[in-house]
Design a protein around this nucleic acid. Structure first.
Lengths: 148, 148
DNA sequence: GCGAAAATCACCCATTCGGGTGACGCGCCA
DNA sequence: TGGCGCGTCACCCGAATGGGTGATTTTCGC
């Protein structure tokens, strides 16, 4: 945005300079003032139009209302699987937070630990789940019924 | 649109008339030309801006419908929601791949496009879903019944 | 067929993630 | 009491991700 304003102003300055340079030529005409104004008006209205379009196009103003979907059976964790994979309680917490779409930093803040700690937990979790990415970890965990 | 042009032209004419009427007052000033141009530029750029806004504003007029969906049957995409959010088919594909735990590079390979393309799609998706991370995007998309 | 929307790709930058290593404290229990 | 599991934290580094800009081509509705 700052850049846009800058360009805008610059163009304006250049325009004024050009018009000033050609001022005398315009003055010898009968309706120089009108021509001058017309040109400026045209150019700047075009500029303004372009700017307005440009600046507001990606403004969708979408309103989203939450819809709670009635869920069938309550979730039940596959404890056997948890033990089989050797996943600790703390790691499960990290896993749930991860599934909720939180970043490591946010998880750290929520669980009152450092970001580094979260990273270690997450790393070990990826090992145990054979995952390489957190999205994959979440997906696998859901399939394994470790999280809802 | 025709009407708009008419109004626009009319306003321009009126403006020129006003400026013409006050021409002599301006002329006694030293930098009358610059002032004149500046005023015209300001007014018309404002006008153009307003016009640009006006013309693109009634883009969507989003209608929010709340639908309670009975659970149990196979997954059915909430098409209304998809349209509300303005999510394109291609973006949905990326979303599904993302939910499957694939990286951008893997998605790119699977859909036979470049990684950059996947990133742009993903970026727009995050915008539309108001998400900052892919895990969050997946989570929100599932809540909105965009993906299973 | 014209214009808007969609899809494609590139480049840059900052942040986040993932992976590896090492270390410390605490509780447990053999 | 020494080992072990768990949780905690730090540092480094490369890869992945997110965000922005800009541009071109395809597609499609009117």
């Amino acid at each position: 945005m700052r850049k846009t304003v800058l360009v805008y102003g610059l163009l304006g300055g250049v325009l004024v300079a050009i018009l000033k340079a050609t001022e005398y030529r315009f003055l010898v005409l009968e309706h120089s003032l009108e021509i001058y104004g017309g040109i400026v008006a045209l150019i700047f209205s075009g500029l303004g139009l372009w700017l307005g379009l440009k600046r507001t196009r990606p403004k969708h103003t979408v309103e989203v209302r939450e819809v709670l979907v009635p869920v069938g059976g309550p979730f039940e964790r596959d404890v056997a699987r948890v033990e089989q994979l050797g996943i600790t309680p703390r790691e499960l917490e990290i896993l749930e937070a991860m599934a909720a779409g939180l970043s490591n930093r946010e998880i750290a803040g929520r669980l009152f630990v450092s970001e580094n700690t979260v990273k270690t937990h997450a790393g070990r979790l990826f090992d145990k789940l054979s995952a390489r990415r957190r999205t994959q970890a979440v997906q696998l965990a859901k399939e394994a019924r470790l999280i809802p």
